[in-house]
Design a binder for these strands. Structure first.
Lengths: 218, 218
DNA sequence: TTTCTGACTTTTTTAATTAATTAGTCAAAT
DNA sequence: ATTTGACTAATTAATTAAAAAAGTCAGAAA
């Protein structure tokens, strides 16, 4: 029984090693430019062994994605927990999103017109699930601020949705419309951050409670 | 002298005819899928004649673009002139942008990875100029509302920029991220419109003058 | 002289073929 | 149960040939 459990743990540890190695390659060169052979070589194992632990390349990629998404959501929670106010929480959220994007944007780069996410149901569901998770975190955060009296009586979920749409929109707009460089540079990230901060500022003015907050805080 | 002038006018009229014929094709099939021969055939003229009036296809495309951009900006002005309030003006702006997008989105569709706008300096400048024109119109509109007392003392240009970023962002996000269909459908346009309206709502709350406006309007 | 055309050349796209690389499998070894 | 080398199948990249479209020009028509 205990032996059985140890085995499972070891299997998981091995999978984790593979995921970490794959993540390194994927986040550096992107998924299409990473071969299963390279991942295997990095770990000094045979390619066949990768297929012992993962059914195919795309499944490995998804597990890698799940791995970093877990980190992404965990950080979200932390930021919201430690936020001194709703406004500061939103600002921290932006900083984090930019830093996270810098670190992992290669995972998002699609080679030519060959983009997995278009027709793949699995990708659609994956993104959908991520969005929902993020949405509920932000909604909860806004809800808390509303109960606090920092925000006025708004529909938290509706506001959270709008907020997410705007942030994603600005990102895409800057990356894929204004400066279509396949590999984004620091300047672009900085521009996006600045724009997001400005948006958050006006946005916050629109949802904050004018009877409470800064006016009363003295 | 007068003869010379008539000649010039006639030349312009001919160019206009070509532009209109080209616009029909371009807005229906997109620029890459429209051939110079087709445009010539539509007008029952020879292809060589097109090259008598326009140096090349891309120049024709730009003149077509300038033609509809003029319409775009003209409508902007009209909307802002006739707006009963800043908020209603912004709402009308959204309705117009959606309608305009429905009509001319084909001009924007890029074939595969072959997208003119990426490396073409002319395209960059064109878009830049359009943005600036739109920006100054919106800025002026906000400035007017500020002087009216409808808006609080904000930096009108800054706010206009943010507004434009947000609207473009939502558009791009919905079109190219959420539902990557090359030819957008009515449902998508409707979704975008709804999102924009929600954003405008919060946004307006953030910039309106709380001492004036709705509170005092009775 | 200005506007226009048919016949032409050059450049770009598209399609088809082939070569090379990579994903994925499996019998056998540890 | 885990691991591998040697294998096949599927994709991707490179090459080439064919087709289509862009663009030119000498000269006709107005």
């Amino acid at each position: 029984m205990i032996v059985q459990k140890d085995k499972i743990e070891e299997l998981d540890r091995k999978k984790e090693q593979i995921i970490e190695a794959a993540l390194k390659r994927f986040s550096h060169f992107g998924i299409p430019k990473t071969t299963m052979n390279e991942i295997a070589e990095d770990l000094s194992i045979s390619k066949a062994l990768l297929y012992y632990y993962f059914p195919d390349k795309i499944s490995l990629a998804y597990e890698v994605a799940e791995f970093i998404i877990a980190e992404f959501l965990k950080q979200h929670e932390l930021i919201f927990e430690n936020a001194a106010s709703c406004f500061e929480g939103l600002q921290d959220l932006i900083s984090f999103r930019i830093a996270f994007g810098k670190k992992y944007f290669m995972l998002h780069i699609h080679d030519k017109q060959t983009d997995v996410s278009v027709h793949d149901v699995r990708a659609q569901q994956f993104i959908c699930s991520l969005r929902e998770n993020e949405l509920s975190l932000i909604t909860a955060f806004l809800e808390k601020a509303k109960q606090n009296g920092e925000l006025k009586a708004v529909d938290s979920q509706e506001i959270a949705k709008i907020l997410m749409d705007m942030l994603t929109g600005i990102w895409i707009c800057e990356m894929y419309v204004n400066h279509k460089t396949l590999i984004p540079n620091d300047q672009q990230f900085h521009t996006i951050k600045t724009k997001m901060e400005k948006i958050i500022h006006v946005f916050y003015e629109g949802i904050k409670n004018n009877n409470h907050g800064t006016a009363n805080s003295k």
